[in-house]
Design a protein around this nucleic acid. Structure first.
Lengths: 226, 226
DNA sequence: CTCCAAACGGACGATCGCGTCCACTTGAGA
DNA sequence: TCTCAAGTGGACGCGATCGTCCGTTTGGAG
């Protein structure tokens, strides 16, 4: 009884199973960072030192694996949003939020694609947390606009736009933080109210939910010109 | 003699070969637009009503096909640059250039990826025209900065940054011109000198040449949650 | 220590895209 | 019309990835 509850408490998995699961997650992060989230499952398995079957038992689909691998980063994003909302100056909060998320995308290679790709899918749990994130972000935007720092015509959907564009930059240019940082800086400046000298085209219907499987980064190889 | 020169004048191809070549190009544009530039060669062949062998004879590699399919758009880009240089107001020229190229990426789906992907490769001819494009663009930037409209810390490499980011947006959101237009508007505003209220991080080493195989858009499919 | 269900690993059949090869067709010069 | 090189099409062999199946191993309860 004591023993069995100890197992249940640790996820109902046998000790070796738990260990393997963890190994797989570590390997997945490494492989995804190196080869993109479309890397062969077998590669992840080999790197983890387990058989494919083991991998598939723990994560039946590639998406499950991706989700597992980057759960921590997602968590960080959620936390960043909470912090942004709690910040005394809403513009500061907004700016920090964008910078934090983009920095995360920059640092954890493979994550950006995962981040963008993760949204469309809907576990009821995920759907709810996503909805909450959107609502919170909208609140943040409104506050920042009310404070006069964020331009009035900024639309919450612009966040998805930024993240998508930024994701591509990071994915396409592994290791080039410079471009990423610069893009973010440009955009943040144009989001300030005092830069709003000209009207914008209408916002897109883009939402964090419901959207785009984005730029994956399968490193395409040039065919050597014969 | 008259006959043979007629053939030579039309590319040295037999009438049916020429016809097929054209069909392939049309099919390629359609297929690339629909499935991304990584679509199976066989799909293009089928759509063109041709055998694979025929396709491969005309275009030995996928890159050759991509290049052929979007040659016209590339041409348009080059022309746009020339026009921008010729414009009386360099800022106007700059702005129109960015808008034109982005519009092109928006309209001809599949082209953005082709555009970005096309640069790294170097036929001597291509290399030269690329170099020229970069030199011309740099000139344009300098003039626009001298006129006082373009912020002084804008760096020519920022163009590549914009195109890359924009490419991802267009590719990921087929049919959503809104996001694309909005991103371009935001960025153009932040490029204006009068928006340069805060310093930027240093520019990346990013060049049009020598760079990134970008976001392809192989439509990844959600695995239906069982 | 014994036992068995949980966990494991890797072989395997299936699918897919690539690019070549070769036997057949056809355009066009004579 | 005749002829043949140019052009064509599709079958084929190769290699990669997927996801499953099944015989073997092992954790841990009794």
């Amino acid at each position: 009884m004591v023993e069995s509850s100890r197992i249940a408490a640790r996820g109902g998995l046998r000790a070796d199973a738990r260990r393997n699961r963890e190994r797989v997650l570590v390997a997945a992060r490494a492989v995804f960072a190196e080869h993109g989230i479309d890397a062969p499952m077998a590669t992840v398995a080999r790197r983890a030192g387990v058989g494919v079957a083991t991998l598939y038992r723990h994560f039946p689909t590639r998406d499950a694996l991706v989700q597992g691998a980057f759960a921590q980063q997602m968590e960080t994003c959620v936390r960043a949003l909470a912090e942004a909302l709690a910040a005394p100056d809403p513009w500061q909060g907004f700016q920090r939020l964008v910078e934090t998320v983009c920095a995360l995308q920059r640092e954890e290679r493979g994550f950006p694609a995962a981040f963008v790709a993760a949204f469309p899918e809907s576990t009821s749990e995920h759907a709810r947390s996503r909805q909450r994130a959107e609502r919170d972000f909208t609140t943040l935007v409104r506050r920042a606009q009310a404070s006069g720092a964020l331009r009035a015509d900024f639309h919450p959907s612009d966040l998805a736009m930024v993240l998508l564009a930024h994701c591509a930059l990071v994915t396409a240019l592994p290791g080039d933080g410079a471009a990423s940082r610069r893009l973010v800086a440009y955009l943040l400046q144009s989001f300030r109210a005092d830069a709003a000298n000209e009207p914008l085209p209408p916002p897109s219907a883009l939402t964090l939910r419901s959207l785009p499987i984005a730029a994956d980064d399968s490193r395409r190889q040039r065919v050597p010109r014969a």
